[in-house]
Design a protein around this nucleic acid. Structure first.
Lengths: 139, 139
DNA sequence: TCCTACAATGGACAATGTCTAAGTCAAGCG
DNA sequence: CGCTTGACTTAGACATTGTCCATTGTAGGA
């Protein structure tokens, strides 16, 4: 049984077949799926699930802090079930493949006070870009 | 006369009224405009300019490396004429305001070899998020 | 089992960006 | 200066991603 599903259940979520399927798809393999990819996989298990429900469910999981939204390009948002280990992302500029990475150092500390313009800075997001080995081989 | 315009001219660009207007709008004040905002401002100087031309022109300036594309949210891409000074961005989570910032340190060096998964990493993009003073005041 | 509030549905709508076919024009050339 | 030509512009259709809403369905408690 899925950890993600367990955590959601423990928060008093009303459990429905749709929500179960979305959680299972997300938790299944730790790739970073788009909402439409989640929908496609969910449909194969529960054919009548609607697109709106998938969007709603993903949005709720993000609000609950159980799933992270990742936007590495200007295309679709991606959903990352690995919300409880802070991490950043490494993206292939050619094929869009994404890996979680854990850089050393704390970029938040690297932003001096005189570069904060009075903002209350609470979060930082780091995206590394490059070419993955597969794309490099077929260059 | 605009620096940006000068640089573009020096690259053998065919100079048209439309391209001139787009370059002037971008270079005018160093905010980070969306494509549609650029279009709106361009229209006020050259009423018959089309949306497609603005998109095309911005895309060409990005390809030439004279302008940077910035995607800080899921909404529109923004265009940053400050392409020749490397920098990162600080974004207000509430109103979307963007400031250029220059953090200390080099995040590229913070990614150890065993976290690179064979990628050739060439670039890193850092987005700080927080609340700007204006939004904090009206909270 | 029945109720009721919460969830799901599907289809319209919105925002952003891309493409295409046809017309227009900048700039080099004679 | 006036052609010629191919690059540029245009308008609008189309694509993608995401949101909204009114209606229908259902989980879970009494």
């Amino acid at each position: 049984m899925s950890d993600l599903l367990e955590r959601l259940r423990g928060r008093g979520w009303r459990m429905t077949a749709q929500r179960r399927v979305v959680a299972e798809v997300l938790d299944g393999d730790h790739v970073h799926l788009t909402a439409d990819e989640v929908h496609a996989r969910a449909v194969s298990r529960l054919p009548e699930i609607s697109r709106a429900t998938v969007y709603n469910t993903l949005g709720e999981m993000v609000s609950l802090g159980e799933v992270l939204e990742v936007s590495t390009d200007r295309r679709a948002k991606r959903y990352d079930p690995n919300a409880h280990r802070p991490h950043h992302h490494l993206v292939c500029a050619r094929c869009g493949a994404i890996r979680d990475v854990h850089p050393a150092g704390n970029p938040l500390a690297d932003l001096p006070a005189d570069e904060r313009y009075g903002f209350t800075v609470s979060d930082v997001e780091v995206t590394y870009r490059g070419i993955c080995p597969t794309c490099a081989a077929t260059a």
